[in-house]
Structure formats: structure tokens, C-alpha cells
């Protein structure tokens, strides 16, 4: 057992744990901030996206198609080098979060839209007949049901988001991936380090997946 562990450089990894720990914490922070941002952004987009008002819908569809169909890495660069040019004094962290939330929010908007459209018009009528405005009906009746219906695709999207946070290493944020690269540059132990980091991502995404499934089951169990 010890032989296997030492073959995979376990002792070495152990000695570098504080560096990985710092990187891991940043990955967690970026993931959490981007997730919150992406969900809120997706929710903010979906109303106007479905408003039926052409002058609102067309620019939103254009934006969604643009961010969905260009590489996130490029968008991170654009955010990092572009936003300061617009006079926004943002940290690399914020630029990274904005780029990730922007793209994943666009994806989420389309997922939310699919969920909302899957709710029967009878639910709308039930809510409107009680004197709710469309806005109240959407918030209290339609969205809660729609979100529950699309929990699995939302989960997928957020797992992709977690993995995508590795891209912000390109703008010098020493999150998990970049912290690994830095250890490799000092030690040359690329195989061991990348394998270890992959395992950490795997642990993170599966833990997230399990939490999400438990939450989903809890919600469903009530109905």
C-alpha cells in the first residue's frame, strides 16, 4: 500500500497540501459566486426573454447566442482586459466571476425558459383568476414549479460551471488548477499533481451533485 501511495507521489502531494488548499478555497469561492451570479442573471434574463416585446427579445436572444457560441476562455479575457477599459476598476476575481456568470446565466436562462413553458396554461389561469398580476403569478406559481422541473439540467449546468472555473487560471487567479501548475513548475511532478487535482474536482462536483439530488428529493417529496 505504501509503495502504491509513494508511486503516485502521495507523500509529495501531502507536503504541498497548503498550496492546494489555498487554491481549492479560491475555486470554491469563484464557483459559489459565479453560481449565485449565473442563477440570478438567468432569472433576470428569462422574463424579458419571454416578454414577447420584439425590441427587448431580439437583443437578449443576440446576447444569449453570442455568449453561448463563443469560448468562455475568450470571454474571460475580454472581461479581464475589457472591463477596466470601460473604467470599471474590477479585480481579476470579479472579472472571472462576471464572465462565468454571464455565460452560464445565458445557458440557465434557456433552461428556465424551457421549464416555464412546460407549465400548463391552467396554472396561469388559476393564478390570474385569483387577481394576481402576471408578475405575481410568475413569481409565486409558475417559477417555483418550473425550477423544480428543471433541477436536473440546472444541476448539469452548474457542474459544468464548477469545472469551467479552472479557466480563470488564465488571468492569473491562483485557484486549484493554477496552484497545481505552480507546484508542477517547481517540482516537475506533473502526472501526480494533475491526477490529484482531477480527483479534487471530481470530489467537488460529485458532492455538489449529491447535495443537489437530496435537495431535489426533499422538494419533490412535499408534493
Amino acid at each position: 500500500m505504501d509503495a502504491i501511495l509513494s508511486f503516485f507521489g502521495f507523500g509529495f502531494i501531502q507536503s504541498q497540501l497548503p498550496r492546494f488548499w489555498d487554491g481549492f478555497q479560491l475555486t470554491l469561492a469563484i464557483s459559489a459566486a459565479s453560481m449565485i451570479g449565473a442563477v440570478l442573471w438567468g432569472l433576470a434574463l428569462v422574463g424579458p426573454r419571454m416578454s414577447g416585446v420584439r425590441t427587448i427579445v431580439i437583443p437578449i436572444v443576440a446576447y444569449i447566442e453570442l455568449v453561448r457560441n463563443t469560448p468562455l476562455l475568450l470571454q474571460i479575457y475580454l472581461s479581464y482586459f475589457g472591463l477596466p477599459l470601460l473604467g470599471l476598476p474590477l479585480s481579476a476575481f470579479m472579472c472571472g466571476v462576471i464572465a462565468i456568470a454571464s455565460q452560464h446565466g445565458a445557458f440557465l436562462c434557456e433552461i428556465f425558459r424551457a421549464g416555464i413553458q412546460s407549465i400548463s396554461r391552467h396554472q396561469w389561469e388559476g393564478a390570474l383568476a385569483l387577481g394576481m398580476t402576471r408578475r405575481k403569478a410568475m413569481r409565486q406559481v409558475i417559477l417555483p414549479q418550473a425550477v423544480l422541473k428543471v433541477v436536473p439540467p440546472i444541476g448539469n449546468q452548474l457542474v459544468i460551471l464548477i469545472k469551467d472555473t479552472s479557466l480563470v487560471s488564465a488571468i492569473g487567479i491562483i485557484e486549484l488548477t493554477l496552484s497545481g501548475k505552480m507546484v508542477i513548475e517547481r517540482s516537475g511532478a506533473s502526472f501526480e499533481v494533475f491526477l490529484f487535482i482531477a480527483a479534487v474536482y471530481l470530489l467537488l462536483t460529485t458532492t455538489f451533485g449529491v447535495v443537489l439530488r437530496i435537495a431535489e428529493n426533499r422538494l419533490r417529496a412535499r408534493q
Binding site: H122, Q123, E125, G126, A129, P144, Q145, L148, Q223
Partner: peptide
């Protein structure tokens, strides 16, 4: 309504 339209959630 014919279809009740209660809110299932």
C-alpha cells in the same frame, strides 16, 4: 375550473 388548477407546489 374544470381542471381544478390548484397549485401543486
Amino acid at each position: 375550473f374544470q381542471s381544478f388548477n390548484l397549485f401543486p407546489h
